[in-house]
């Protein structure tokens, strides 16, 4: 009887081990998948994905050297509500965070690092709304 129990036990362990090897994820470990840059504050968001090309273009338009192009990246009502003037200085750089895109019900957000000339980089959260003309920016918040 003891031999039987020992055999059963070893069989179970072997089965578990084989199962683990077969089912485990072979991908290398990934960083926390909310898209934030290293050292940036943690936000309560699920794992994101890559930005759609049009949304990425719109986000980059904010850093355009042309003031009108910057404004056109916003939703019309945000553009209308903000004071007149250039949004960001020429030479501003926007580095979109990979896999930070979240989209639901016609709205979305993504994170990026925004660097104005001569100023420290800022981690920002950008909001988007889907309009008939494509994605437009609803808000940009500097994350502290």
């Amino acid at each position: 009887m003891r031999k039987t129990l020992l055999f059963l036990g070893l069989t179970l362990v072997a089965a578990f081990g084989i199962g683990y090897l077969a089912l485990r994820d072979d991908q290398p470990p990934r960083p926390p998948d909310n898209g934030k840059p290293p050292g940036a504050p943690s936000l309560p968001y699920k794992s994101g994905g890559p930005l759609p090309a049009q949304a990425a273009d719109i986000a980059q338009d904010l850093a355009s050297s042309d003031a009108a192009t910057q404004r056109a990246a916003l939703t019309p009502e945000l553009d209308h509500a903000l004071e007149a003037g250039r949004l960001l200085p020429e030479g501003t750089r926007i580095d979109l965070s990979e896999d930070s895109w979240h989209e639901a019900n016609g709205y979305a957000n993504a994170q990026a690092t925004l660097t104005k000339p001569g100023k420290p980089a800022q981690h920002v959260l950008m909001g988007f709304a889907k309009r008939s003309t494509g994605w437009r920016i609803t808000v940009v918040e500097v994350l502290k």
Partner: peptide, 27 residues
Amino acid sequence: TDLLSISRHPVLMTLDAVLSFCAGYDL
């Protein structure tokens, strides 16, 4: 959302921002 842009009501514009924050929010 396209009709929202017609109204340009400040409350609705603000709600746009809030709804943007909601995408992927995971408490």
